[in-house]
Simulated assay, not measured.
Amino acid sequence: MAESASKRLKTSGPLIGTHSGHFHADEALAVHMLRLLPAYADSGLVRTRDPAVLETCHTVVDVGGEYDAERRRFDHHQRGFAVNFPGRPTKLSSAGLVFLHYGRAIVAQRLGQAEDAPDVDLLYRRLYENFVEALDAHDNGISVYDPKAVAAAGLEKNYSEGGFGLGAIVGRLNPRWNDPAPADRAEAQAAEDARFLKASSRIGEEFDAELENYAGAWLPARSIVQDAFTKRSQHDEQGRILVLEGQSVPWKDHLYALEDGTPSVLYVLYPENPQPGAKWRIQCVPESKDSFVSRKPLPEAWRGFRDEELDGISSIPGCVFVHAAGFIGGNKTFEGAKEMATKALV
């Protein structure tokens, strides 16, 4: 039996199908990503588990028990499914499948470049590894760490991460078990569908923001960090001090890539803003992107002090502060910040 008009959340363009009932982050993102492309911009959406209705859909995600890219069928629940993103170990969900086949086009559209352009390939892989893969793992029940290895090491969490994951953001938008539901089936489905659209929009906002950050800020920073990396021996013979002239840019990912597994830089210096006379910061390079452990923290004797008191302790004029954890500090001038870095190297 055909679906009622109330279940077709949009009525023009190719029809997308996904399952009804409790929704998840992967199909919510899959639908959003499809609709970023011109071919799907005005697509209809039907949420059902009826095979006959799904057969009428142009594209089906997260339901139907079939993965066939030529027929635009993107489910991952069927027995024997074991598709991964190139070079990554995580089994794909519907979000990963859609991104695998349409992610390049989405990135190319944002950059205004051909799909085979190097920058497109770079961001395609970065977006998967830093956004989509987490949804694939969450939907497939894959832990961040091997549970057996964690148990064997006797590790326990210091605190709860709460409901801040992407899956939780979407999960909260499902109806609660004790929410009153309309007695009329069509009205109940329409209410559920409205929640799904909100979920798709919500996680879509996060995806769009991630893409925009990579395209608008992260990628343009590459050449700036590359130039500073090339010149680092001007500030320290061993290349342990990197100076970003003009203003700070996102540097961690690019620095780790440039070092290529051989850590060398310990401190990064940059002005607080691009205005003349701006104060300067000295930041310690973390052991890894998400680590709070610095390769070489600023001296313990400086930590937690400010201004003239810090000047006296460090014997460096113009000090502004050093954080109590020793990972960042500041000085009124570049010369002062560089002297802080040079003394901290000892």
Rank of each mutant, 00 (worst) to 15 (best):
S315P: 07
A325W: 08
L36S: 06
L242I: 06
G103L: 02
L54F: 11
I282W: 00
L166V: 02
A209T: 11
D184N: 14
A257L: 06
A95S: 13
F207H: 00
R79M: 08
E192G: 13
P51K: 14
P182W: 00
Q189R: 04
R110K: 02
E339H: 06
S264E: 04
P263T: 06
A301H: 13
A324K: 15
I224R: 10
K289C: 10
G330W: 04
A181T: 14
L123E: 02
T342M: 14
S223T: 11
E272C: 10
H138C: 14
W218Y: 05
E237A: 15
E55W: 08
K289T: 13
D62V: 09
G304T: 10
R172C: 13
E287Q: 15
R73Q: 06
V265Y: 01
R88M: 07
K279C: 10
F207Y: 01
V249T: 07
P118E: 05
R73I: 06
F131R: 02
N174D: 12
A137F: 10
F85K: 04
N174M: 08
S294C: 10
V83S: 13
V243Y: 02
P14A: 13
D50M: 08
S12T: 11
V107F: 04
I16K: 05
Q113S: 09
A278G: 10
V120R: 04
H22N: 11
M33G: 03
N178S: 14
G87K: 00
